[in-house]
Design a protein around this nucleic acid. Structure first.
Lengths: 132, 132
DNA sequence: GGGAAAGTTGACGTTTACGTCAACGTGATG
DNA sequence: CATCACGTTGACGTAAACGTCAACTTTCCC
């Protein structure tokens, strides 16, 4: 087990976020870096969680949504009741994500049709467009 | 062409949004209802656009992102240059949406794995879970 | 040993996407 | 004709997700 640590600056560079953002996520209990004196030391776990956080944001989830989801990836250090609750919540999230993907697929199909339409209109006006 | 009109109240009921939201979208030029005196009359076009707006929001797009995308669905009443620009923008959006769908697919796969893991842990503790 | 560089904690500012409230107009209805 | 229901325009409030700035440590480097 490589138990390397990263400074806040290294995290910023690696993930393209600001220090303010990382401190904010810690305040919201999405991350929990160790301390060396007053300085934060981010762990492998923090990096994994940050990856999930940024991913979740791209899907349009709120930080609060994401916080709850993150617990699933820490499965194991929970009581049985808590585990069952987390599990149910994760199933709901999964269903939501699948629904979102389906809707996204439909939207993509629609947009492709609109693009084809636009392409024809451009062709009518004698404008060429880069091939797909 | 059915050129029915809808009041703001009807729109609220049909789409599950508040009047404030619709007025806000009009202020941001996402919608452009007609007027009967001072009252808004929403058209079929407004409803189509509102559908796209709410969809876009679920994908995590900002209203400004969405506003630009909406122009594509009005293709036709634009100059050639503007049309070409809109077309390019739409291709970029399409690529972004496809990337998002792919990422979402991966995230779904990951989450499914975590769920399977959680299921095994629950089983170990003798807890049964509803079948898929 | 004296700057930079990197980090810290407040505290206040900003943008987005609306909510909320006041004050008013207008048309239908018992 | 009063009183609702429904609509209107401001104007101000708010939650989320950070940005920005000030005032200090700490550490590294020549």
């Amino acid at each position: 087990m490589t138990d390397r640590h990263w400074s806040i600056g290294e995290m910023c560079r690696d993930f393209g976020v600001t220090a303010r953002t990382l401190r904010f996520y810690e305040a919201k209990e999405l991350l929990s870096p160790l301390r060396e004196g007053s300085r934060r030391l981010f762990t492998r776990r923090d990096r994994a969680r940050l990856t999930l956080i940024l991913q979740g944001k791209r899907f349009g989830f709120s930080l609060e949504d994401i916080r709850q989801l993150l617990d699933l990836y820490d499965i194991g250090d929970q009581g049985a009741t808590q585990l069952a609750r987390t599990y149910d919540l994760a199933r709901q999230r999964l269903a939501a994500m699948e629904a979102q993907r389906d809707e996204l697929t439909r939207a993509i199909t629609d947009l492709r049709e609109q693009l084809a339409l636009g392409e024809r209109m451009l062709a009518e006006r004698g404008i060429r467009v880069a091939a797909e």
